[in-house]
Simulated assay, not measured.
Amino acid sequence: MHRSAVCALLFTLPLIIPSYAASTPEQRGRVYAKTHCARCHAIGRTGESPFKPAPPFRTLHLHYPIETLGEALAEGIVTGHPAMPQFELAPPQINDLLSYLKSLE
């Protein structure tokens, strides 16, 4: 790929992928949560979870030390609530999501 094409791609990446447009880990974590988790979980400071068995993110720290969730996110959470899908996050995604969860404490 030509160098100018690479530069153009890197310049437009934040416009194509919203999580790259966010400048802080907390902001990227919120984008991740909104994209991948909000269908079931309340991800903000208020509101009920759309799927009742899914705990609101703002209450997770009451049940788990947020720092301990990193390993589970890396290996794939297979439980949580009965309908929760299994998934695995990459280390940067884990850092971003944990940063966002800590901001809700």
Rank of each mutant, 00 (worst) to 15 (best):
Q86T: 14
I43M: 03
A8S: 15
F57P: 00
P18G: 07
E48M: 06
A22F: 04
I94D: 03
A72S: 12
L101S: 02
I66D: 01
P25H: 03
A33K: 04
K52G: 05
T68S: 12
P56N: 09
N95C: 04
R58D: 03
L97E: 01
A42D: 08
S23T: 13
H61T: 05
L97T: 01
H81Q: 09
L60F: 10
H36P: 01
G70Y: 02
P18N: 07
F87A: 15
L97Q: 02
F51Y: 15
N95R: 14
F51R: 10
S99Y: 01
R3H: 12
T12E: 09
A83P: 04
R28S: 15
G29K: 00
P25I: 01
L89W: 04
P50R: 04
H36E: 07
L69V: 08
P92S: 09
P65I: 05
G47D: 07
L104E: 02
E67W: 00
P85R: 09
S4W: 07
H41L: 04
L9T: 13
A54Y: 05
L73F: 15
M1Y: 11
T79P: 02
I94A: 07
I77F: 06
E26T: 13
S103V: 00
S23F: 06
L73G: 02
G70M: 03
L97P: 00
I16F: 11
H36D: 07
H41D: 06
T46G: 03
S99E: 01
L101H: 01
H61V: 04
P50K: 03
V31C: 10
L9G: 14
R30S: 00
F11V: 13
H63R: 14
Y32M: 08
S103N: 02
A21N: 09
H81S: 07
A83C: 08
R39D: 10
Y100Q: 00
I66L: 11
A38L: 08
P65D: 15
T35F: 04
Q27H: 06
V78M: 08
Q86K: 15
P92N: 09
A8Q: 15
A22G: 06
H61S: 14
E71M: 06
E105D: 13
P82K: 15
Y64S: 05
S19K: 07
A22M: 12
G47S: 08
G44P: 02
E88K: 14
E71D: 08
H2D: 12
L62M: 11
K34H: 10
E26W: 00
V6F: 10
N95Q: 14
L97I: 09
S103L: 00
